[in-house]
């Protein structure tokens, strides 16, 4: 069984991403949406924590939310891929259960 976790908060103000990273099981996917996409930034104080999990977890950022916030792929950590809403739906269908980190 694998879970899709969604994180929608900035890691710089709320601990959702950190908590999600600590609870997700190997093989799970974390999708960063809304303000959650700030967790994908490279060179931030939490980048290393996120980067260390890439590989055992898939970490994906939602492109429409990145674009809205002026963030393109060059600004995010290597190993984090991006997707659109169709991809979001596909991820949800592909995983056994979806858990939102509100």
């Amino acid at each position: 069984m694998a879970s899709l976790h969604t994180v929608n908060k900035s890691p710089f103000s709320i601990n959702s991403l950190k908590s999600c990273l600590e609870h997700a099981n190997d093989g799970d996917t974390i999708l960063l949406i809304e303000d959650g996409i700030y967790g994908a930034l490279k060179g931030s104080e939490i980048s290393q924590i996120v980067a260390d999990k890439i590989g055992s977890l898939s970490i994906i950022a939602l492109e429409p939310d990145m674009k809205a916030r002026g963030i393109d792929s060059s600004k995010i950590l290597t190993g984090i891929i991006t997707t659109n809403y169709d991809g979001f739906v596909e991820l949800a269908a592909k995983h056994d259960v979806c858990q939102a980190w509100l």
Partner: peptide, 18 residues
Amino acid sequence: SRKEMGELMGNQDVVLSF
């Protein structure tokens, strides 16, 4: 433990978050 909690979360059909 946190690890056990993660495993519990990964073994559900429906997860409702509040």
